Amino acid sequence: MAEQLPRTAGVLLRGCGSATPSRSISNDELSQRVETSDSWIQSRTGIAARRVVGPDESLAALSAEASRQALAMAGWSAESLDLILLATSTPDDLFGSAPRLQAALGANQAAAFDLTAACSGFLFSVVTAAQYLRTGAMRRVLVVGADQLSRWVDWDDRRSCVLFGDGAGALVLEACDDGRDDLEGFVLRSDGSRGGVLQLPQREEHQALIDGASHQIGGFQTIQMNGQEVYKFAVREVPAILQTLLSKTGTEPEQLDWLLLHQANQRILDAVADRFKIPQAKVLSNLASYGNTSAATIPLMLDEAVRDGRIQAGHRLASSGFGAGLSWGAALLRWSGPA
Rank of each mutant, 00 (worst) to 15 (best):
A2D: 14
L13W: 10
G15V: 11
C16N: 11
P21F: 01
S26T: 15
E29H: 02
V34A: 08
T36R: 04
S37G: 05
W40K: 02
I47R: 05
A48S: 14
A49K: 11
E57D: 04
E57L: 07
E65A: 09
Q69R: 14
Q69P: 14
G75F: 13
S80G: 04
T88S: 10
L101K: 03
Q102I: 10
A103V: 08
A104Q: 12
A110N: 04
A111W: 10
A111I: 14
D114K: 03
L123C: 07
L123N: 04
S125Q: 05
V126D: 07
A130D: 09
Q131Y: 13
A137F: 14
R151I: 09
W152T: 15
W152K: 15
V162G: 03
L163M: 03
G167F: 05
L171P: 03
V172L: 11
A175L: 07
C176Q: 13
G179L: 10
S190Y: 13
P201E: 04
Q202N: 06
R203C: 15
E204F: 12
Q207I: 13
A208N: 09
G212P: 11
A213F: 03
G218V: 12
F220S: 15
N226Q: 14
V230D: 00
Y231F: 05
F233H: 06
A234S: 13
P239H: 01
A240D: 14
K248I: 13
K248W: 01
W258I: 07
L261E: 08
H262E: 09
Q263S: 09
A264F: 02
N265K: 01
Q266H: 07
D270I: 07
V272L: 08
A273V: 04
F276W: 06
F276L: 11
F276I: 08
Q280W: 04
K282H: 15
V283L: 10
L287T: 09
L287D: 00
A288W: 02
A295M: 01
Q312A: 10
G314P: 12
S319A: 09
S320Y: 12
A324Q: 00
L333C: 00
L333E: 00
S336G: 04
